[in-house]
């Protein structure tokens, strides 16, 4: 489903080049539940942005569902983001002037779905995250955990194949974090691939696969080890 080969990315800071991803090889299959950990600055967010087609990379191969992403036009990229990927961010990234329902309905607007159907679908997903009663509230009127649920509902609304979540519980207390993780687990049970960047061990350990990043390289990946083990045998 997601295939990365020797992905490299660097940022230009003045005259110097800062290499952030130094050759990432990664395969994530359908329905996987993956945690990405690593020290601050190790490139986790950068990797997730590349995966989400939210940022460009310098070299390497990235195939999403068998389609090489590098060659996509801006318009095609927009369609892939809409149809394949749901995003959940640490800072929620809800539009402050839209209420919960309208925020959830926004990806559907970009699918060209009419208002009525859009709002119905949005209500379904709000219900799914337990916020049906809060649909007319603005983000400023909701708690952090509630906002993150709205964001998850929004990520689900376009029926994506993969959810990319960058520290989704980073701004939440531990009880709320557990509830949010529960949500991700149930999504994964429905067959959606979930990738979570996190600093918290208990979050990471609820995932089925743990990838460790260090200085722009994958330091540990159980999938690689088993593959390597298979080779050895």
């Amino acid at each position: 489903m997601i295939e990365l080969r020797d992905i490299r990315k660097s940022y230009r800071i003045g005259p110097r080049k800062l290499e952030v991803l130094k050759g990432i090889d990664l395969h994530i299959g359908k329905g996987e539940f993956v945690a990405i950990m690593g020290q601050s600055g190790s490139g986790k967010s950068t990797l997730l942005n590349v995966l989400g087609i939210l940022d460009e990379y310098d070299s390497g191969l990235y195939e999403l569902d068998g389609v090489p992403i590098r060659k996509l036009s801006a318009k095609q990229a927009a369609r892939y983001r809409n149809a394949f990927i749901g995003f959940v961010f640490q800072s929620f990234n809800l539009l402050p002037f839209k209420n919960a329902m309208e925020n959830v309905a926004l990806p559907l607007y970009y699918q060209g779905i009419g208002r009525k159907e859009r709002n119905q679908t949005a209500m379904q997903y709000l219900d799914k995250v337990g916020l049906a009663d809060w649909s007319t509230h603005l983000p400023s009127e909701l708690s952090g955990g509630q906002n993150q649920r709205v964001a998850i509902a929004r990520a689900l609304a376009s029926k994506p194949k993969v959810i990319l979540a960058d520290e989704p519980t980073g701004a939440l207390d531990s009880t709320t974090s557990k509830e949010i993780m529960g949500l991700f687990e149930s999504l994964n049970d429905e067959g959606i691939s979930v990738l979570i960047v996190t600093h918290e061990d208990d979050i990471a350990h609820r995932c089925k696969r743990l990838i460790r990043l260090k200085d722009g390289l994958i330091e540990a990946d159980p999938a690689l080890e088993t593959q390597a083990g298979k080779h050895l045998r």
């Binding site: 939210l54 927009a78 983001r81 809409n82 995003f87 990234n93 539009l95 970009y110």
Partner: peptide, 16 residues
């Protein structure tokens, strides 16, 4: 700008 980024992440095209 931030709103533009969010909308793009949700599938907005540049033209729209």
């Amino acid at each position: 700008t931030r709103e533009i980024g969010v909308r793009k992440a949700l599938g907005a095209t540049n033209g729209s």
